[in-house]
Design a protein around this nucleic acid. Structure first.
Lengths: 244, 244
DNA sequence: CTCCCCAAGTTGTATATACAACATGGAAGC
DNA sequence: GCTTCCATGTTGTATATACAACTTGGGGAG
């Protein structure tokens, strides 16, 4: 079809110099006017190429000084964590939820440091089993600050997940996740229909809206039936529910 | 100091309409020429505002039709996965690596579907134990395509991690991660100094450079000593190594 | 030697203008 | 009624031009 636009071609050329190692981090890149002369493009075209590479983290620009190759970003990767109902549905499977508890209870002492609430203060507590095609796959144990989600107990959590409800009433400003491999307590084993020595994958999730903690959830999964993760561009079938 | 530039002010106004719900997903946004007339800016300024909001995922633009508010991103969260050496060092702890194997071997049959290599083709295989303050915390079992990293076997992996080396010689274009809770095989237990029923957290990682798979790593961690994850803005101490 | 000023160069924003490539709706023709 | 064509409108790229805000280095004055 179309050849690439000029600004995109210029971006690609600059990126080649960087990736090849010819222009290491800190190296000064030709100025807009130099690129204009060298490549026979307008200054606005050169500006756009450099500006986009800057917004992509490849370059650093200093007004009056020039444009420099950026330090490489730290090598880290991202793993996507999805709401269990969405995940199951994305696999073309049936999601169901069984609500085992949904009531106001005093906040246990070990959770006090997790919330902006005093010991014994009333909090909402829900225990929900999520099933995929009739098989338990996640046991959700969640505590919620009533001030942040006053209507929490009025919900039918067989129709909407707590995650979805909370996302709506208390927009997420921050989240924390920790993943562990553990031997679960016996009540979790019973809810998830797990054998005696089977490990569980536990995801702990805490969310904030503004500066205040909204909820703390422990999400337990049977190691034999669940895996966590999705690749960038990967088939969804590889993640989540293990093959039978 | 400076008032915001015109394009930034226009961006902010459009974003306000979106965030407030006045302009829901799918809603048509005023065209560049309409914004030019309504706001008394040049068309290039309007174009820049709309273009940047588009690259930020807020708008969708169709040549000839117009500009529309984008659907909100699916509710998902991101978990950061870091190179084990960086992670340990970030905690102010000492990272060491013990190389238990580093050689060319025929690719096992179960890995053939994972690489663009034929069964029995030569591949690089490394087994490395990573220690934190002298305690084993990760057992890394990695296979590498020799065509993608020809110098792999020449490295001293007590000084640089395979992850770091591969990131340099074969720039990452794609990555896949899957996290599982498993009972590890006995050789993994031995390397990681784990008890008989203790679960392991296993991270499987595969990376591509361009269209070709570079490496497949299984990263085993003792469930009692390692947790995976970091919050956005959280204290690093909460993640990775469990408190003694 | 230090400080100040100025010239040259660089990035940053804004506008006007032009042409290209596409979408859409209405009108005309069959 | 269906198809084709055309006018209008929209996005996409490119250029020339202008002014602003900053950096840097060199030279001159005290």
């Amino acid at each position: 079809m179309q050849p690439d636009p000029l600004y995109a071609r210029l971006k690609a050329q600059i990126l080649r110099e960087i990736v090849s190692g010819n222009w290491p981090p800190g190296r000064r890149v030709p100025s807009e006017n130099e690129l204009t002369r060298q490549h026979g493009v307008s200054r606005m075209t050169a500006n756009r190429a450099l500006r986009e590479l800057t917004s992509e983290g490849r370059l650093v620009r200093l007004r009056g000084s020039g444009t420099f190759v950026a330090e490489p970003a730290p090598s880290s990767d991202l793993l996507v964590i999805r709401n269990i109902a969405e995940e199951i549905r994305a696999r073309g499977h049936r999601h169901e939820a069984r609500v085992r508890r949904l009531r106001r209870e005093p906040l246990p002492p070990d959770l006090v440091p997790r919330f902006a609430l005093a010991e014994g203060a009333a909090a909402f507590h829900s225990l929900i089993v999520h099933l995929e095609n009739g098989r338990p796959i996640q046991f959700e144990d969640r505590w919620v600050d009533p001030a942040m989600a006053p209507g929490y107990l009025e919900n039918d959590f067989t129709r909407i997940t707590p995650h979805e409800f909370l996302s709506r009433v208390a927009p997420l400003s921050r989240a924390e996740h920790v993943v562990e491999a553990l031997l679960p307590p016996t009540h979790v084993r019973a809810w998830l229909d797990m054998g005696g020595t089977e490990p569980a994958l536990r995801l702990e999730r805490r969310t904030w809206s503004g500066e205040r903690v909204v909820s703390r959830a422990l999400l337990w999964h049977p190691g034999s039936r669940y895996r966590l993760g999705a690749a960038i561009g990967l088939d969804i079938d590889r993640a989540g529910s293990k093959q039978p």
